[in-house]
Amino acid sequence: MRRRRALWFWVFVGPFALGLALFTYVPLLWSVGLSFFDAHNTVTPTHFVGLDNYTAMLQDDAFVGSLRTFLVFTAFIVPVTYLLSLSLALMVNRLRRARAFFRSVFFLPAACSYVVAALVWKMSVFNGVRFGLANTVLGWIGQGPVAWLAGTDPPWYWLVIVTVRLWLQAGFYMVLFLAGLQRIDPVLYEAAAVDGARPGWTVLRHITLPQLRATSVGVVLLLVVNAFQAFDEFYNLLSDARGYPPYARPPLVYLYYTALGQGQNLGLGSAGAVILALVIAVVTVGQARWLRLGRTDADG
């Protein structure tokens, strides 16, 4: 019987474990291996260079600059998305009528492709000519057109990037918060009311937020990882056939050009990828410890 169970275990788990090993772990380990070689235009290099690629990457102003930019971007976008999606969830949760309608309305952008949204933002809403949507609105109040994505002073491109990201993501995290809100026992609110807690800020602070701890930790973790792995909307908003400008360049976009673009320096690209993975791991573990991940809502 036990052998039979083992057999069935492998029948069901085997194909997925194999896929995971083949398409995730092997490339990952291969990449770590490549990072110690001079691997220009090859995935089977022979020239071992030790830690040279890591030294070069850490001395590369463009790469270190992109890491720095994205630490700042993360510190900004995570709380903003968190607050916006939580606010949406609280509002939708209080609705007596048409709750499903508004839930869908806010969630729908999450179903939109990042590429499509980025192109709509770039070519229609925030294009730099006078008939772009944003520039048309500016025209009504007598302002000249703004080159949203081309200028660095002031860096209007952040407005474009942040708005498209919020539009795409807030609905998804709102649904996570809604699920969390609906798991809170209404008895707690009744008890709080009996104890004289005023509805509003007091209840939010002492009942709702502590009860949402597990959801919040999950949401923040996802947001942080997402922010470091930013690629799609940045690439589609700012790149052109000739490359990517030196500002608002996520580490992944830089590595993409180094390793997979014309550069084809797979050793250097892999070293950058390992450094980026370590940064994400350190931030995530640190954050999980700080937020005491694994504790349940009830422990809060």
Binding site: A62, G151, T152, D153, P246, T258
Partner: peptide, 28 residues
Amino acid sequence: TPAAQTAYQDALSRIISGGASPEGELRA
């Protein structure tokens, strides 16, 4: 090479739209 091109193009972008010092950028 593409790596030289990337470095040059980054510098040119900073000079044109960022107003960076051409001398400093070109030195790098």
